[in-house]
């Protein structure tokens, strides 16, 4: 078993031009996240949570420092290679679900598999399994506008999990959900984490999410101010 960290950041700095100078979103962030962790990056708005998640997901590049994700230095990746890294190894879950509105539930979940070049039979099996995981096999032909918020986020989870990625990055996944749906989604994620050993990294300031995580990394003004293991309040 590979016991190297799944994610490592070293002196990660991200600055954005602002006015005549720069705004520092991340300031020398050093982290190491192991496989199978269920980690939350918490902090107030503007603390750099989403920026960190974007850099880990190879959606953005740091101004300095380095990020190793699944053994790959993301700074050395061009657009095509970073797309492949996301496609093969990383699942994303967004606050606003971001399902493709013109496609039905089945097709939304199928999309990442099409990019992987999987054949139709394999795709069908994987999609139906993912929809079974999230309990939406009866909504296969529904369009996103026919789903509730909770159902939409479950589709988004199925889309992220269908390719059984090693890492799922979830940016405020419960921000638009009521308590019941939030707990349903989080329990589902815990199950994936335990059964499939999928690593989950959340960017959140939602206490409901914080109640589930086992490691809490607190950011403030772009710096890690606290990094500790926590005992999940709910399991």
């Amino acid at each position: 078993m590979d016991d190297r960290p799944l994610i490592t950041t070293h002196d990660l700095v991200k600055q954005y031009p602002a006015g005549g100078g720069f705004f520092t979103a991340l300031n020398k962030v050093n982290l190491s996240i192991q496989r199978g962790e269920f980690t939350g990056i918490v902090g107030p708005s503007g603390s750099g949570k989403t920026t960190l998640l974007n850099i880990i997901g190879a959606l953005d590049y740091p101004s300095s420092g380095s990020t190793l994700v699944i053994g790959t230095d993301t700074q050395e990746l061009d657009h095509r290679m970073s797309a492949r890294l996301r496609n093969e190894h990383i699942g994303f879950i967004f606050q606003t679900y971001n399902l493709l509105p013109v496609y039905n539930v089945y097709e939304n979940v199928e999309f990442p598999l099409l990019l992987l070049g999987m054949n139709a039979d394999e795709r069908d099996r994987a999609v139906m399994q993912a929809l079974e995981w999230v309990g939406l096999t009866d909504k296969v032909r529904s369009r996103p506008n026919q789903l509730s918020g909770g159902e939409s986020q479950r589709v988004a989870v199925a889309r992220a999990m269908v390719k059984k990625p090693e890492l799922v990055l979830a940016d405020e996944p419960t921000a638009n959900l009521d308590a019941e749906n939030s707990h349903n989604i989080l329990r589902m994620m815990v199950r994936f984490n335990e059964e499939l050993r999928t690593t989950f990294v959340f960017a959140t300031h939602d206490e409901k999410v914080i109640a589930y995580i086992r490691r809490k990394i607190t950011l403030n003004d772009g710096m890690v101010v606290e990094d500790r293991e926590t005992k999940p309040a709910i399991h």
Partner: peptide, 16 residues
């Protein structure tokens, strides 16, 4: 742009 953002996040390359 929004849809493109999702597709990029899911793993489609900019070229695709």
């Amino acid at each position: 742009y929004g849809e493109i953002g999702v597709r990029l996040a899911i793993g489609e390359s900019k070229g695709q």
